[in-house]
Design a protein around this nucleic acid. Structure first.
Lengths: 229, 229
DNA sequence: TATACACTGTCGGATATACGACATTGTAAG
DNA sequence: CTTACAATGTCGTATATCCGACAGTGTATA
C-alpha cells in the first residue's frame, strides 16, 4: 500500500486534500489486483466502492442497444473514479474493464459513508470532483455538436488522454491502445473514415498509427492546433 | 416571494429537502425580475449566485467559435441551476437568456456559502444535484454517438423538455419555442434536414410543426417510441 | 516454424446529408 | 392595411461518409 501513496496523491484532485484527510482515506483503502480483461464493475450494477488507480489502465465503456461497444474513457494511475454511485446510490453509469493487469485502491461504500460522517469537511472536495465531471461532460457535449468529423476525432483523442477530465501528463507522448474500429464507434463513424482521418493527422505529424495503437507524440501540440478552430 | 414557494418546491430536487432546510434557503433568496431577451449570466463570467426559476423560461446557450449559437437546455418554473460555479468558483459554463419575462429566485454566492456553513447537512443534497447533472450529461454523450440523425433529434427534443435532467412534467404537452434552424445547430445538422425529419415525426403524430415552435403532444409516447431503438 | 486471426490501408459504388435556391406563410411594426 | 422580415416547406445538386471487398501486415499460439 505504502508504495502506491505517491501515485494516488499525484491526482490534482486528491493532491489538494490536506494531509490528514489523505491519511484518513488511505486508512480506509484496500488494494485489489485484477488481471487484464477482468471486469471491475458493470453498467447498471450497484456501486460498491470508490476507486483509485494504482497501476495499470482501465477502459470505461458502454454497450449500446445495438451491441456496439463504445469507449468512453481510459483511466490511468492516479485517477479516481466511481464516486457518483456513492452519493446518489444509483447504479453505475458505465462498464469498466482492465486493459492491463491492474492494481486499484478501493474504499468500500460503507467505509466511504463513515468517512464522510467522520470528516464532513470532505464534502467540499467531493463537490469539486463532481464539478470537474460536469464541466468536462458539458464541454464535450457542446463541442461535439458543430464540429467536423476530423475535429470530433481530435477532440475524442484528447478526451481519452485526459482521464475523465482530471489532469494527466499532457506534455509526454501518450499511446492509446485502441483499434481504429473502436475509435470509429466512439464518434459514430466508420473504421475506414477514421483510418483516412488519422492518415491526414499523421501527415501533419500529430499522431502515429500503429497496430492496435495510436501514439500522440505531443498532446499539447494537437490540443493547440485543434482546440480553437 | 411567498407565492412562488410552491413552484420552487415542485422540483424533485428541492422537494426532497426537509422543510427546515427549504425555509432556510427561502430566507436567503431575493427575487429578480427580467425581461424577455435579457441575459442572466454569460459563459466565462464569475458565478454570482444559485438560481431557481419562479416563472417564465430561460434558454441556456453556448456560442461556438464560429459564432453559431447552440441551444443547450430550456429552464422552466421549478428548475434550479447555477450551483456548479458556487462549488468550484470557476466561470459559468453557459450563456443564459430569458426567453420570456422571468422571475428568478437568487441566493447570492456569499449567502450560499454561509448557508452551507450553517447547515452542512445540505451537502448531501447538493452532491445529489450534481450527480443528476453528471448522469444526464453522460447519458447524452453515449447516446448521441451511435444514433441516427433522427434519433439524435428525438433525443435532443426530449432533453429540451427535461430541463437539465431535473423535474419532468412529461405527461403534459410541451411546446418548445425554437426555430428549426436552432434545432439543426444543436445536432450539427442543417435546417432543411431537420425540417424533413420533423415532417416524418409529424406524420407519425409525435410532434407538430408551427411557426418558430414545435409541439410535443405526448412526450411519454415520443420517449417510449425512440428510447430503446 | 507454421497457422490462425485481428488490424490496417485503400479501392469504388451506394447513400445520407449539406447547401443553394425560391416560393409560401406567419409575425411584427408602422 | 401595408410593408418588412423571419421562418417554413421543398426542390435539385454537390459532397461527405458509409460500407463491402480484398490484399497486406502484425501478433499470438501451437
Amino acid at each position: 500500500m505504502e508504495k502506491f501513496k505517491p501515485v494516488l496523491a499525484s491526482s490534482t484532485w486528491f493532491g489538494a486534500l490536506p494531509p490528514y484527510l489523505q491519511e484518513a482515506m488511505f486508512d480506509k483503502m484496500r488494494l485489489k489486483h485484477l488481471r487484464a480483461g477482468q471486469q471491475l464493475h458493470a453498467k447498471g450494477e450497484d456501486g460498491v466502492g470508490f476507486y483509485g488507480v494504482c497501476e495499470g489502465r482501465l477502459r470505461v465503456v458502454t454497450v449500446g442497444v445495438d451491441g456496439r461497444e463504445m469507449l468512453f474513457a481510459l483511466l490511468g494511475p492516479g485517477t479516481w473514479f466511481g464516486e457518483i454511485s456513492m452519493f446518489d446510490d444509483l447504479p453505475r453509469t458505465h462498464d469498466n474493464f482492465c486493459e492491463t493487469n491492474c492494481t486499484v485502491a478501493i474504499i468500500q461504500k460503507n467505509a466511504f459513508k463513515v468517512l464522510l460522517e467522520q470528516f464532513p469537511e470532505l464534502y467540499p472536495h467531493f463537490t469539486r470532483l463532481l464539478c470537474t465531471r460536469v464541466r468536462s461532460a458539458f464541454q464535450f457535449i457542446d463541442s461535439s455538436a458543430g464540429l467536423s468529423l476530423k475535429h470530433q476525432l481530435v477532440k475524442r483523442l484528447l478526451m481519452l488522454t485526459t482521464s475523465y477530465g482530471q489532469h494527466l501528463p499532457k506534455h509526454n507522448a501518450i499511446t492509446l491502445s485502441l483499434s481504429q474500429e473502436s475509435l470509429a464507434q466512439m464518434i459514430n463513424s466508420s473504421r475506414q473514415t477514421v483510418n483516412q482521418l488519422l492518415g491526414e493527422l499523421q501527415q501533419e505529424g500529430l499522431v502515429k498509427r500503429h497496430y492496435g495503437k495510436i501514439t500522440i507524440p505531443e498532446p499539447d501540440t494537437l490540443f493547440g492546433r485543434y482546440q480553437f478552430i
